[in-house]
Amino acid sequence: MRKLIFSLCLLLSLSSVVNAQKALKVGETLPNVALLSTAGTIYDLKAQKNTKGFILIFMTPTCDHCIAYEPRVSALDKKYKVKGYPLVAIGPYGDDPIKYPFDAMPAMKKLAKEKDFKFPYLSDDKFKYTWLLGIKETPTAVVLQKTKAGYLIKYIGRIDDEQNQKLIPKNKFVEKVVDKLL
Score class of each variant (00 low, 15 high):
119 F>W: 04
115 K>H: 11
121 Y>S: 11
55 I>W: 05
91 G>K: 02
92 P>N: 01
27 G>I: 14
24 L>D: 05
27 G>F: 08
40 G>I: 13
140 T>F: 08
103 D>C: 02
126 K>G: 03
118 K>P: 02
61 P>V: 12
142 V>N: 01
27 G>N: 09
48 Q>N: 14
166 K>G: 14
57 I>H: 05
59 M>K: 14
12 L>V: 11
82 V>H: 02
163 Q>Y: 11
34 A>S: 12
62 T>D: 14
81 K>L: 07
108 M>D: 08
146 K>N: 15
148 K>I: 12
130 T>G: 00
11 L>S: 15
128 K>W: 00
71 P>C: 04
179 D>E: 06
82 V>A: 13
37 S>Y: 11
164 N>S: 03
146 K>Y: 08
76 L>P: 11
134 G>F: 01
64 D>Q: 10
69 Y>H: 10
51 T>M: 07
24 L>Y: 03
121 Y>A: 12
97 P>T: 14
181 L>D: 03
85 Y>I: 06
8 L>D: 14
50 N>D: 15
111 L>E: 15
65 H>A: 11
128 K>I: 00
152 L>W: 07
163 Q>M: 08
170 K>T: 04
99 K>N: 09
109 K>C: 13
33 V>D: 04
131 W>N: 08
52 K>G: 12
74 S>V: 01
6 F>H: 15
98 I>N: 13
96 D>Q: 10
8 L>K: 08
144 L>P: 07
156 I>A: 03
78 K>A: 02
23 A>L: 01
100 Y>K: 09
162 E>L: 02
105 M>T: 12
5 I>E: 14
171 N>M: 01
45 L>E: 03
3 K>S: 13
164 N>W: 00
119 F>I: 00
35 L>V: 09
164 N>K: 06
155 Y>A: 08
57 I>K: 00
147 T>G: 13
173 F>C: 04
125 D>M: 06
144 L>F: 09
127 F>T: 00
44 D>S: 05
61 P>Q: 15
168 I>R: 02
98 I>Q: 07
176 K>T: 10
62 T>R: 12
181 L>W: 07
22 K>C: 01
17 V>N: 05
101 P>G: 07
129 Y>V: 01
136 K>C: 06
18 V>M: 12
46 K>H: 11
12 L>F: 15
140 T>A: 05
48 Q>G: 09
111 L>M: 15
107 A>M: 14
117 F>P: 07
151 Y>R: 08
28 E>C: 08
74 S>P: 00
19 N>M: 11
137 E>N: 12
182 L>R: 10
144 L>V: 08
